[in-house]
Simulated assay, not measured.
Amino acid sequence: MGLLTALGPLAIDMYLPAFPAIVQGLGTTQGHVERTLASYLFGLALAQIFYGPFADRYGRKPPLILGLVIFIAASIACGFTHDIEHLTFWRIAQAFGGAAGIVIPRAVIRDNFDTRDASKALSLLMLVMGVTPILAPILGGQVLAFGSWRGIFAIMAACGGLLLVGVVWTMRETLNPEKVIPLGLDIIARNYLALLRHRRFMCYTLAGGFGSAGMFAYISGSPRVFIEIFQVEPRYFGLLFAVNAASLIIASQVSARLLNRHTPEALLRIAQRSLVIMTLLGLILTLAGVINLTLLMICLAGFMASQGFVNPNAAALALREQGNRLGVASALMGTLQMLCGASAGLAISAWQSTTALPLTGLLALCACLSWLFGRIALKAT
């Protein structure tokens, strides 16, 4: 489940160092290439709505196999495209395949664990997810050193193929037959509407969603900030990316250990305060004109560490009361969070500046919104 969840970050992060090469290779602009990332995130968000009901009707395994097949085919197509419009289209198709790796693992975990243990399991998933952002840009940078940016998509297709073999041969079905939900438009609509009206579910989901939006703003904006503004060489970009990803990994594992003595609510409350403090500090330093690469990295590492606590605990709390509709709940949670992330990615690609203000400004906004919805959810508990 961890490797399947890592497929999405792989497709997001691995081609980040290739942005300048894609601009040159396809004869386009940096903004258009950044929008291929935002398009991927929008596709990832919308596709999850469809996987949820199918996972509750046909089980966890068949939709996962279908998603991996789509991901592999779209990755191959991305590698053969010759203009930015087709690359954007195939990135959306790639997202429709990769979305299965987000929805299904969360449902599988909740099939097997209660809220506290689900928080621990989701924290362990973040260990695998966190390693991917470290390795993916480094691997993408090395591919560029020896070949074309098209080779990056070939590696994505190969990873999807290996995971497909693993799912077919080793994964067991975890959906209890007694919890199968019939597939009908009225039932699907009723379940999604009930979730949208569920105050705690929505607030915990948006608390995690706006935290994730900050992460996607960082992912989308970091190539421009590091490479163009602070003049970091593309081959070293992955190392800076790795420092922040390491912060996320370490914090998520500390969160898992602390759950033995503290509740998910207590950890979420503290982490969201830290999230706001670190991002507002970065924004103030930027507005004061004293931000440099070292100070920015300190603020980013603090933000990522805080998110290592926020994401797994908010997700587990959101799914706590959704035992009979875990598929659609996981799907809606993923959709809303990805829509937040895609909106942040689109905003940072449209906000052109010669400073780090678009990045630090959006991070601060996302952190404050995450804190606000977290407060509402915790008061409603």
Rank of each mutant, 00 (worst) to 15 (best):
M1G: 02
M1Q: 11
G2V: 10
L4R: 05
L4S: 05
L10N: 03
Y15P: 01
L16M: 11
I22C: 01
V23I: 12
L26A: 05
G31H: 08
E34S: 06
R35L: 12
S39I: 13
G43W: 07
A47P: 00
I49V: 12
G52T: 10
A55E: 05
R57E: 00
Y58S: 02
R60L: 08
K61Y: 09
K61F: 09
L66W: 15
G67Y: 06
V69M: 13
V69W: 06
A74Y: 05
I76R: 04
C78P: 01
H82E: 14
I84E: 08
W90P: 06
G97F: 07
G98M: 11
A99F: 02
G101V: 07
R110S: 08
N112Q: 15
F113T: 08
R116K: 14
D117K: 11
A118P: 01
L124Q: 10
L125M: 12
G130D: 11
A136H: 02
L139P: 00
L139M: 14
G140E: 15
V143W: 00
L144R: 05
L144I: 07
F146G: 09
I152A: 00
G184H: 13
I188T: 05
H198P: 01
R199S: 09
Y204M: 13
S212K: 07
I219R: 01
S222C: 13
F230D: 12
Q231Y: 14
R235A: 15
R235K: 15
L240Q: 04
N244S: 12
N244Y: 05
S247M: 14
A251L: 08
S255L: 09
R257K: 15
L258R: 15
P264A: 13
L267F: 14
S274G: 12
I277K: 01
L280D: 03
L280W: 14
L281K: 00
L287Q: 12
L287N: 02
G289F: 09
V290A: 10
I291S: 03
I291V: 12
I291C: 02
N292A: 10
L293W: 04
L293G: 01
L295C: 02
A301W: 07
G302T: 07
F303P: 00
M304C: 12
A305I: 13
A305R: 04
Q307Y: 14
Q307R: 09
G308T: 08
G308S: 10
N313M: 13
A315H: 00
A316L: 08
E321S: 08
G323D: 14
G327F: 03
G334M: 09
T335H: 00
Q337S: 15
Q337L: 13
M338A: 08
M338H: 09
M338G: 01
C340F: 06
C340Y: 06
A344S: 07
G345H: 02
L346Q: 13
W351I: 13
Q352L: 13
T354M: 10
L357H: 06
G361V: 07
C368Q: 06
L372V: 03
A377T: 10
A380R: 08
T381L: 11
T381F: 05
